[in-house]
Design a protein around this nucleic acid. Sequence first.
DNA 1: CTGTTAGCGCCTTCAC
DNA 2: GTGAAGGCGCTAACAG
Lengths: 363, 363
Amino acid sequence: MDGGGRRSRSERAAGSRAATIQDVARLAEVSTATVSRALATPQRVSPEARARVAEAIAKTGYVPNTAARSLRSQKTHMVLVVLPDLANTFFSKILRGIEETLFEAGYGMIISDLDGSPEKEAHLSAFTAAGRVDGAILLNGHLFGQNRDEEGGSAPLSIPLVAICEAIPDARIPQVEIDNRVGAAGMIRHLASLGHRRIGYVSGPRGNILERERFQGYRDGLAAAGLAFDPDLVIPGDYTLEAGVAAGEAVVRGANRPTALFCTSDVMAIGAIRTLASAGLRVPEDISVVGFDDIEFAAVAEPPLTTVHQPRRELGQAGATALIDLLQGRKAPDRIRLKTDLVVRSSAAAPRRTMLKSAGLNA
Amino acid sequence: MDGGGRRSRSERAAGSRAATIQDVARLAEVSTATVSRALATPQRVSPEARARVAEAIAKTGYVPNTAARSLRSQKTHMVLVVLPDLANTFFSKILRGIEETLFEAGYGMIISDLDGSPEKEAHLSAFTAAGRVDGAILLNGHLFGQNRDEEGGSAPLSIPLVAICEAIPDARIPQVEIDNRVGAAGMIRHLASLGHRRIGYVSGPRGNILERERFQGYRDGLAAAGLAFDPDLVIPGDYTLEAGVAAGEAVVRGANRPTALFCTSDVMAIGAIRTLASAGLRVPEDISVVGFDDIEFAAVAEPPLTTVHQPRRELGQAGATALIDLLQGRKAPDRIRLKTDLVVRSSAAAPRRTMLKSAGLNA
DNA sequence: CTGTTAGCGCCTTCAC
DNA sequence: GTGAAGGCGCTAACAG
């Protein structure tokens, strides 16, 4: 043991094995406790010792081992991000906002794509229970792992959680979302100010919380513009391209055509525009079509889409910040509502005289 | 110590503290080693013991602690994924492929968005050195952390690595990429078979490896179709929308207009189409425009884009599989080249007579 | 087949 | 201000 002492001191620094706190301690000729303190609370270590430790660390390339540290401190400095579909481009920017905020605070991000698989969801509970993460950010609109209710009523997975995007109504955790209602209302007012009086609404999935809020906003906007709500102007949708195509067909076929169509997602707007175009209706000359979300492609669609911008990156940042607050023992706000922005591009314009007239006659 | 034995047995199962292997062992009346074995190598444990352990685990809700396990086994079952821009939708599907493959093999995925920050890159070296991950998948086109070269020449971060997408020429690690050259050549042959004889090429950034391969493919395709290479038909680009817009302008202004334009990215194709359209040139009636990548939006662009499909999900899967092979001591192939697919939609059509004629006259 | 023993690398009392 | 010692939870030797 003592015979190997001299050898190991130099070998370990240069060897392939990662340097440990022991290597540093030996090199600096202090105890491991001092090395540890030099790192965590430098002010409690004498300047000379501190310098020697610093030198030894530089020489060995020492980096504290995370597993050992976690085991001791019961903290992982890791955050789990749960989302329904990693391939959905809508989430990418949010993820980026989360990642950069987490990174700055010294946390790493573990991503899990739920992919609609309950098996995977079950696995996640185990994952968090195994102490792999300190907290989680949920983008999937519901909690997970609250189905473990064996005897003794073991605690229902009590790491800090934050929800982003889709609010989770009954959950008592911080939630970050956009103000869907105000955003939708703003768009309707914009359309009304352009002169539109018959504004169609293509909905999201029935019962969806986003849909409910946006629909409220639609009605708010109508009311604010002094326009009556007409149920015939509501076309059911579900945020998909296909729903947009179908909505376009409904408009083409329908009597009493609206002069503007508010699609509650950009992809529906794009689908609708394509259908309308193939039926010979030009956008926005013959009919205005607007969307919601401001996805990447909205700007380069043909025509460029007038839409409601969601601050996705900020959504991610706000969610991560809230979680970090929780993780570090601070209080996080219950609910953060981010403002949307109306983005005026060229898919909406003032209705033409004839359109107004015919609408007026028909109505 | 012994006095607390009885109490703790029941308390721990229901208490707020997570159950440990000790709790399970006590409950099952076996040693912790047996519990450990029952989990890792069930066949080496007697059926009765196994059953008792299983019961105890169910009762306590025991999940092995990851930090302790890592510390002991020197494995984290975590993989780091490094990418240049998380917000770029091109990567989302690749990530998904990676994630699902990793998940099935019992690995977690930690994502780091490099974001062009060298500071962050440096941090990543520390990250891997800290033993937080067993391996890494690089999507950013170069290695990182090989700048640590202090005295003694400490080993240059030797966890298993795999590169996806952009090959890293000098690195001796498994690489997964698509066959850019063959893909580009196939597109040119398609255009030629439609009757095009003047095919423009909008390039990627000078020096980029993808660009070099696609350009080779362009020339291969030309040669295969018996068409001469004309440097005047090459327009510099960099894969961005703006470059596409500029390319469109160049085409509009230029004499000797090509009848088809091969843009080496879909977003450039979309930018070009928009410019062409505002100049009154219809696609594909007046000029064909095709892309490369088959991004989400290619299918719903106006007109729907004929392009070269990259199997992004498979790219991710193949990369993850290669890394897992490495991690588990198997050999991984040095280089995997995935095939692309020609996706024929409607942005390319046969050139009109007049176009051919004028081209012929001008040439 | 099973239990005992000894750490993995770190942090944190507790003494000095 | 510093060192010695114990233990976080687990697994891998080694005995039986």
